[in-house]
Computed example of a mutant assay.
Amino acid sequence: MNKIYVWDWFVRLTHWIVAILFLANYFVLPKGSEPHQIAGYIVIGAVVLRLLWGLVTHSPARLSEFKPSIPKALDHIRSVIATGEDDHVGHNPAGAIMIWAMWALILITAFTGWGTQLDAFIHAKWLRETHEIFANITMLAVAVHISAIVVMTRLTHRSYVKGMWFQRKQ
């Protein structure tokens, strides 16, 4: 199936807000600066709103539509390698594991960053180090996510990126 599923506007909006601001915080904005903090707060808000959206929407973006399952993800990967097809609308089983992992990592990164600014933890070196460790793990997950999109696009000849651009359904 090569038809492109285009995510709803809210999913696309929150995806790109999180992606752009996480990358800006990781690569561009000075660590601990006010813009870095504001970007982190916006990321928390965007992820929380996306999770709330996933509770109320009636689309493939609904959280119950892509419950993480390692056995299903492995079966899916084997199937794609064998057939070159991915007929899932929305997240496939491997993508489900990745998105849940990324949401958790992003929230842990953001909340540990927020914690470093609280008076009770302002001098807690362990919390700053935890924040940096989770930022690095999150960046690794981002790299795996992007790599998986490239590999899946090549294996299935289906454009996964187009589903996240602002366009009409095809």
Rank of each mutant, 00 (worst) to 15 (best):
Ile77Val: 15
Asp87Gln: 14
Ser147Ala: 14
Ile106Asn: 04
Arg50Ile: 10
Val161Trp: 11
Ala39Pro: 03
Ala96Thr: 01
Leu52Ile: 11
His58Gly: 15
Phe166Pro: 05
Leu52Trp: 06
Ile149Gln: 05
Trp114Cys: 00
Pro93Leu: 14
Ser159Gln: 02
Arg78Ala: 15
Trp7Asn: 09
His76Leu: 09
Gly115Cys: 02
Ser33Gly: 00
Phe22Trp: 03
Gly40Ala: 05
Gly113Gln: 01
Leu13Gln: 04
Val43His: 03
Ile4Thr: 05
Ile137Pro: 03
Ser79Pro: 12
Ile106Gly: 10
Met102Leu: 14
Ala120Pro: 08
Leu63Pro: 00
Lys67Gly: 09
Met139Pro: 01
His36Phe: 04
Ile122Leu: 12
Gly40Gln: 06
Phe166His: 13
Trp7Pro: 01
Val80Arg: 12
Arg128Pro: 07
Leu127Trp: 00
Pro68Cys: 02
Ala39His: 01
Leu13His: 06
Asp75Asn: 15
Phe111His: 13
Thr14Met: 04
Leu107Pro: 11
His131Phe: 06
Leu140Met: 15
Ile20Arg: 06
Ile38Val: 07
Ala46His: 08
Ala110Tyr: 01
Lys31Gln: 03
Lys31Asn: 05
Arg50Asp: 06
His157Ser: 12
Gly115Thr: 04
Pro71Glu: 08
Lys3Gly: 11
His123Cys: 02
Met164Gly: 09
Pro35Leu: 09
Leu74Cys: 10
Met1Gly: 11
Ile81Leu: 14
Val47Trp: 02
Trp126Pro: 08
Leu52Gln: 06
Gln170Pro: 15
Val43Met: 08
His58Pro: 12
Thr156Lys: 03
Val11Gln: 00
Asn136Trp: 02
Ile122Phe: 04
Asp75His: 15
Ala39Phe: 00
Trp103Cys: 11
Lys72Glu: 15
Thr57Asn: 08
Trp103Lys: 13
Thr130His: 05
Ile42Thr: 06
Ile122Gln: 15
Gly90Gln: 10
